[in-house]
């Protein structure tokens, strides 16, 4: 089945390998991911900072690149998927793109939600292999396939209900998700919040990192790269030996 695939601007800018991994995961699941050529960003950074006009300008670029076909649009980021599915209709309300935005919103689905949603409907044979030892595609060392602790990103958890799907996708791939204390508590990234209120943002990261480290599990994952980069940046400053990989990299069946 053909699906459109949108990696998110952060992935493209900072960890393009995550996008590649996500596409391999989709292919291993029997899908045919078609990257949305010309898409840049969902507009969230400006939108959450209060700049609707700027957000619209950028999001329109992506919306138009997405086209108006009926295929699902799989997004490798919980917060971007939320922006598109929850906020685009309001953002484009009253503009020429309003209808397209509503349709795009309805088609948008976060990667693990898509994977597990189709797992329920489709045949088990289409699933990615259960070994799940990522290699090759990942920019970092292979993660070894051991235990992994899921960081719930707020958007994914509260707006998409994706807390369960990340875990289910990992479990389906033979990984055992470990639970941390306070997993429902925000890591402190919050887009522009992370640079407008850096001290608070870092304090929140510290509590999150302490809870993650307390599990004894070194591998941390999430469906949101933004949270992971924030946590990783803090962990490195603190000298914590934790690994942060987008869930697509952990699900990656390899090339």
């Amino acid at each position: 089945m053909v699906v459109r695939f949108f990696a998110s601007c952060l992935v493209e800018l900072l960890q393009p390998n995550v996008g590649a991994a996500a596409q391999r995961v989709l292919r291993a699941g029997g899908h045919d991911p078609q990257p949305v050529r010309g898409a840049t960003c969902c507009g969230q950074p400006a939108y959450n900072a209060g700049y609707a006009g700027e957000a619209r300008r950028v999001a329109r670029r992506t919306l138009r690149a997405l086209g108006d076909a009926d295929t699902a649009c799989v997004v490798a980021s919980g917060s971007c998927a939320t922006m598109m599915s929850h906020h685009w209709p309001e953002l484009f309300e009253g503009t020429a793109d309003a209808d397209a935005a509503r349709r795009a919103a309805a088609r948008t689905v976060e990667l693990t939600a898509f994977l597990t949603g189709t797992a329920a409907a489709g045949s088990a044979g289409d699933r990615p292999p259960a070994s799940g030892t990522g290699d090759g595609g990942s920019a970092q060392e292979p993660d070894g396939g051991g235990p992994v602790v899921v960081h719930d990103s707020c958007h994914a958890l509260r707006e998409l209900g994706a807390g369960a799907t990340v875990r289910r996708a990992l479990a389906d791939a033979g990984r055992t998700p470990t639970e941390a204390q306070g997993t429902e508590r925000c890591c402190g990234f919050g887009g522009s919040f992370s640079v407008k209120m850096p001290a608070v943002s870092v304090a929140m990261a510290d509590e999150k990192l302490d809870n993650l480290a307390a599990t004894g599990c070194m591998q941390i994952t999430s469906c949101d790269l933004s949270c992971l980069l924030h946590l990783q940046g803090r962990a490195r400053r603190r000298g914590l030996a934790l690994r942060f990989d987008h869930v697509a990299s952990l699900l990656d069946p390899g090339t």
């Binding site: 601007c9 800018l13 900072l14 393009p16 400006a46 900072a49 700027e54 300008r57 950028v58």
Partner: peptide, 25 residues
């Protein structure tokens, strides 16, 4: 934010950013 929106709303300038990020970061 205005500059960002200009750069991020064109494929070529966004592409330049992607390349830039790989070099600059």
């Amino acid at each position: 934010f205005w500059l960002w929106s200009q750069a991020w709303s064109r494929r070529w300038s966004f592409g330049a950013m992607v390349l830039g990020a790989r070099v600059v970061l």
